[in-house]
Write a protein that binds this DNA or RNA. Structure first.
Length: 659
DNA sequence: TTACCTCGAGTTCA
DNA sequence: CTCGAGGTAA
């Protein structure tokens, strides 16, 4: 087919289909039969398949093609989706007010309900909905456009072709819909949804957008992330403009000029919260004027011009049935409370950490007690207090003997934790192996908690090195483990042999050596022998390593047991060499001080160069300073360097050092 | 911490 | 159909 013709036809079809969608989703009108719609859609898909260059971001085929757009592919947010600073009482709101007034005495506020759903970003190009994504970590989310297109409250086309508009909103499931779906699920014997939030969340991560459509989700938008083609000066202005464009804006908001009025509105929202069609998890108070927002700016975590007020969380009491003791990877014993299940703030709570003996003593928590629970930050269950002890209750004490291996547990001085002293404790081994296989460590796919546990129980694995000598035949004896599973596991193990050294070091689970330290060690010493042979002092000289880390690492690599295990891994072909470019560490251990006006570099550049070669840039001269880099008009830092006998470099000398 | 979704694999039953 | 693993969200 002629490309020119295809181009024209595709454009026609897109316009037509988008128009139908708009009529259907926004105005609830059906202009064409399903069959007709389908035929047009198929024609467009075929054209796009023949000429992939015809595919535009606003193409209506994107939502149905399914295979064309990768499911939930990552989308990075040009404007990060920040979270808000929380406030739990009036005093914290007044603190916020003080911070605002200091910089912007004229600022006014807008108060809105904070809907408890899922944050999404909706992107419109030339007025057409192009991409919808989840918040993710705020910087990168997932593309859920296909599912979002099914929401009747998300127009596929704005009432005006604004060049570019990205808005932020909250997707939720209206209570009435939730109740209806639950009733229906109960009728048909399915397990009903537990709360609207998770129901909405699940509905949005649906592979088949038709299912999402049936869930009747809704969205409320409450912010413009970025725009081109509009002129907006305040938040209220933005809300009204979004409304005008056909977006479903937050149902009510109040513009006020004093914090007292804001608090009043917060209280009003609190008092009607149970009667709303949506769950809320607080109220948001924002500075209205964009100019003032700019003045206030952001911290690294939140904008300083907004605050999320959280209403007091729901509390419920229930019986503490038991205290379970878990042994962690390092042998630390942690008590976990096991409770009679209660439904609290949208989910069934049956466990909560009791932290340590001090926490238990302080609240005098005993088995059999009735305890008052709530969810901290609306997520993690915690014990607030004991309501009543049961009859004949006894004070709880952490066991003297490890529940897993029976060896003695001690509380070290200055630590809250009791620790099992047995390095071969099976519970520790299990946790250590789980850590070893985990995603950030050796990332052995398919080796989850329960499989590792069965491997240990079958005696096939006693330490990390054993994983590498597993053979498929051994696995076949395990139930629910057939040829395919065995093959996959062996392949995954094989694949992990190629991991970078830093992963292996982290995976070993050396105390005080986390992901970052592991990376530093492998980059500094290049291969595992380098690390093994390094002295405690050498390790301690790495930037950010203190004596505790250095001691711990050095001690680990002195133990015969560790060395033997590493040898066995190496014999199985596990990589023990760092793959990252061998770092040029010519400035390792050196400290530089910059002074005067530099002409060959900017100060930032010079500092970056020093750090990239492993050196440190510091601001004041002391006897620890290795050299001073002096530019024009060097001041008293140069004098001090001379006084202390510290070497002074000219820019030219420095330049020759880095060439 | 809990709830929800997908996927691949194993099992069971027609 | 059921399970475990893996992933996401709050």
């Amino acid at each position: 087919m002629d490309f020119k013709f295809a181009l024209k036809r595709a454009e026609e079809l897109r316009t037509l289909l988008n128009q139908y969608n708009y009529r259907y989703y926004m105005e609830n009108e059906n202009d064409v039969s399903d069959f007709e719609y389908d035929t047009l859609m198929r024609e467009l898909s075929a054209l796009e398949e023949d000429f992939p260059s015809l595919r535009t971001p606003d193409s209506p085929t994107i939502k149905v093609s399914g295979q064309a757009a990768a499911l939930f592919s990552p989308v990075s947010h040009e404007v990060p989706m920040e979270s808000l600073q929380d406030a739990f009482n009036e005093a914290e709101v007044r603190d916020f007010e003080r911070r605002v007034r200091e910089l912007c005495p004229q600022a006014t506020y807008v108060v809105e309900p904070k809907i408890d759903g899922l944050s999404v970003s909706l992107d419109y190009t030339a007025g057409i909905f192009s991409v919808g994504s989840t918040r993710g970590d705020g910087r990168v989310g997932e593309d859920v456009s296909a599912n979002l297109r099914t929401l009747k409250t998300i127009p596929s086309k704005l009432k005006e072709a604004v060049t570019r508009l990205e808005v932020r909103g909250e997707v939720y499931m209206p209570r009435s819909v939730f109740n209806e779906i639950v009733a229906q699920q109960e009728l048909s014997g399915e397990t009903p949804f537990k709360n609207p939030r998770n129901a909405a969340s699940g509905s949005l991560r649906q592979k088949d957008a038709n299912v999402t459509a049936k869930r009747q989700l809704s969205v409320y938008v409450f912010n413009i992330q970025q725009q081109e083609g509009l002129n907006i000066s305040s938040h209220t202005d933005s809300l009204e403009q979004m409304k005008r464009l056909g977006l479903n804006i937050i149902p009510f908001y109040k513009h006020v000029s004093t914090i007292d009025e804001a608090l009043e509105e917060i209280n009003r929202i609190g008092s009607i919260r149970t009667q709303l069609e949506f769950d809320i998890d607080g109220a948001v108070i924002k500075v209205n004027e964009y100019d003032y927002r700019k003045i206030m700016g952001s911290t690294s975590k939140f904008p300083k011009w907004a605050l999320a007020y959280k209403y007091p969380p729901e509390e419920k009491s229930t019986k503490l049935l038991d205290i379970e003791i878990n042994v962690g990877r390092t042998g630390v014993l942690t008590p976990t409370g096991v409770f009679e299940p209660v439904f609290l703030a949208g989910s069934t709570v049956s466990r909560a950490t009791l932290h340590n003996q001090d926490f238990i003593d302080e609240k005098d928590i005993r088995i059999g007690d009735i305890c008052l629970l709530r969810k901290a930050g609306d997520i993690i269950p915690e014990v607030i207090e004991v309501v009543s002890h049961c009859e004949n209750s006894e004070k709880f004490n952490m066991p003297d003997l490890c529940p897993s291996c029976g060896s003695e547990c001690l509380r070290l001085e200055g630590e809250a934790a009791y620790r099992c002293g047995n390095p071969d404790c099976p519970a520790q081994t299990l946790q250590l192996l789980i850590h070893f296989c985990s995603r950030d460590a050796m990332d052995i796919e398919g080796l989850g908690d329960s499989i590792i546990e069965t491997l240990i129980n079958k005696g096939l694995v006693k330490d990390a090195a054993d994983i590498y000598s597993l053979r498929a035949e051994q696995l076949l004896n395990i139930e629910r483990f057939a040829a395919k599973s065995a093959e996959n596991l062996i392949n995954a193990v094989e694949k992990s042999k190629d991991n970078d050294l830093s992963r292996l070091i982290f995976a070993l689970g050396i105390r005080h050596i986390g992901q970052k330290a592991a990376k530093q060690l492998s980059e500094r010493f290049f291969d595992i022998d380098g690390i093994i042979n390094a002295t405690e002092e050498e390790i301690g000289s790495i930037d950010g390593f203190g004596s505790i880390m250095a001691k711990s690492a050095a001690a680990y690599f002195k133990q015969a047991k560790s060395l033997e295990m590493i040898e066995r891994m190496r014999a199985c072909g596990v990589n023990t060499v760092s793959k990252s470019e061998k770092k040029d560490s010519r400035f390792q251990g050196m400290t530089f001080v910059l002074t005067g006006t530099l002409s060959l570099f900017t100060r930032d550049e010079a500092e970056a160069i020093i750090e990239s070669f492993g050196g440190k840039a510091s601001s004041s001269v002391s006897k620890k300073t290795t050299c001073v880099l002096a530019g024009e008009n060097a001041g008293n830092k140069l004098d001090k360097a001379n006084a202390l006998g510290v070497k002074v470099l000219t820019e030219e000398e420095f330049k020759s050092m880095i060439e």
